Amino acid sequence: MSGFDLEDGTIHVGQMTALSGPVAPTAGEQVVGQQAYWDYVNEQGGIAGKYPVEVITADNQYNPQLAVQEYQKIKDQVVMLSGILGDASVEALLPILEQDGAVAVPSTQSARFADYANLAPTFQSYQTNVWNTLSYLAAEGEIDESSIVCGMVQADQSGQARLDAIEFGAEKLGFTVGQPAEFAPVDAAFTGQVQALKNQNCDVVVFGGAANNTPNVVAAATQLDFNPTWIAEFFAMSDSFRESPIAGYLEENFIITGMAGDLDDTSIPGLEQLTELIAPTPVTMQHVYGFMQGLAASKILEKAVELGDLSGPGLQEAIAQIDEVEFMGLNGPVTWGPVGERVLPDTTSIFAYDAAAQYGLRNLVVGYVAPEGQGPGF
């Protein structure tokens, strides 16, 4: 069987991520976090206590075309993909994975990937993170009916998901929705987009970029004296920002979404375990993300071993038979089971930026769920 060594009982899984390219520094932390979980599994003897796991990591450079090429190189060496970084890479690989009957854990927060039998979504959606944060800001008196909320997003499905959450928030909270500004993942100049947002007097901007975009966005906002509340996800942050010129602007203007709580809070079981496994390296939110991917993939493998079938169809059946997966206190649970019955986590941990805090994230609330309820498809 591809990816399973009968002689030594080793299960091989593949991880598709950016070992090089613009997001490599933070993607590398995901690799460390996922490996930490497999180390944890292997210390206990492996899957089902007897099958150790080894990871084969492929470099997609955050490029969907390269993701397809790299998948072809490793697909016969692994039983499944324990991570595919980037919405565009998942989109590019999806028809090939379906043709091959292969299973993957998408390293994204796209709600649409919950509807495929061979994908095992793990995280809350982009929509949930945006909506929960808007609800939180309204509860804190920082958004009201006079507010203008805008989006600065990629011109793709992930960007549209964030815009959908803004529209839902407007229906629930009564604020005005501004015209969105769009950009490409590799853009380095943002003056035009930021000027357009400033011209609309946006009070809040939902930002859909990654860590490679953030310094240039902050530079444009600083130059134009534009100081809204920015809502960003943790992957727009980097540990290097804590000692950079942009730290002050981030502290004054950014709210960040993620999982868990303060990253040095070892009262959270998952953080306690992760901290021990990667010591003395300080835990980052990217480590948490990778750790959770490893946990999700391990649950699939455990069920597949129980069913006696590590083939692609066997792994799909395993996902269909798994109900709720919990994440050691790092996040709300995900419900798998058959397509059509899956439920993504509805929680969002919300952080202020604080250069003195671990990874620059100071927790404001753990596992916030908007009391107004979640939107359809979130």
Results as ranks from 00 to 15, higher is better:
residue 242 R to Q: 01
residue 372 E to L: 08
residue 286 Q to Y: 08
residue 188 A to K: 15
residue 26 T to R: 03
residue 304 A to E: 09
residue 119 L to G: 08
residue 15 Q to S: 07
residue 156 D to H: 09
residue 220 A to W: 01
residue 202 C to P: 01
residue 232 A to Q: 11
residue 247 A to K: 00
residue 261 G to P: 11
residue 293 Q to T: 04
residue 319 I to D: 08
residue 56 I to G: 05
residue 360 G to C: 00
residue 78 V to I: 15
residue 69 Q to D: 14
residue 143 I to K: 08
residue 205 V to M: 01
residue 316 Q to W: 00
residue 299 K to H: 15
residue 211 A to K: 13
residue 77 Q to H: 03
residue 360 G to D: 00
residue 134 L to D: 09
residue 312 G to M: 03
residue 237 M to G: 12
residue 295 L to H: 10
residue 187 D to C: 04
residue 286 Q to M: 04
residue 69 Q to R: 10
residue 228 P to K: 03
residue 25 P to I: 11
residue 174 G to L: 11
residue 225 D to T: 10
residue 108 T to E: 02
residue 215 P to R: 01
residue 171 E to V: 13
residue 356 A to T: 14
residue 359 Y to Q: 10
residue 102 A to R: 14
residue 160 Q to A: 14
residue 337 G to W: 10
residue 9 G to A: 02
residue 8 D to K: 08
residue 67 A to L: 01
residue 54 E to R: 12
residue 146 S to G: 06
residue 353 Y to W: 09
residue 274 L to N: 12
residue 173 L to N: 10
residue 107 S to W: 15
residue 8 D to T: 12
residue 179 Q to Y: 13
residue 224 L to Y: 01
residue 123 F to Y: 15
residue 79 V to R: 06
residue 222 T to M: 07
residue 152 M to A: 11
residue 117 A to I: 05
residue 226 F to V: 06
residue 154 Q to W: 07
residue 159 G to W: 10
residue 281 T to L: 11
residue 44 Q to S: 12
residue 239 D to P: 10
residue 154 Q to I: 10
residue 47 I to R: 01
residue 285 M to G: 12
residue 118 N to A: 10
residue 158 S to A: 13
residue 152 M to C: 10
residue 196 A to E: 06
residue 238 S to Y: 01
residue 284 T to N: 09
residue 278 I to M: 08
residue 84 I to S: 06
residue 322 I to K: 11
residue 351 F to E: 07
residue 3 G to A: 08
residue 98 E to H: 03
residue 38 W to Y: 09
residue 70 E to I: 14
residue 109 Q to A: 15
residue 329 G to I: 03
residue 259 M to N: 15
residue 224 L to Q: 05
residue 333 P to W: 06
residue 15 Q to F: 09
residue 341 E to M: 10
residue 179 Q to M: 13
residue 61 Q to Y: 13
residue 293 Q to L: 06
residue 358 Q to C: 04
residue 151 G to L: 02
residue 41 V to D: 02
residue 346 D to Y: 08
residue 146 S to H: 05
residue 346 D to V: 15
residue 112 R to D: 15
residue 133 T to K: 07
residue 259 M to T: 14
residue 177 V to F: 02
residue 222 T to A: 04
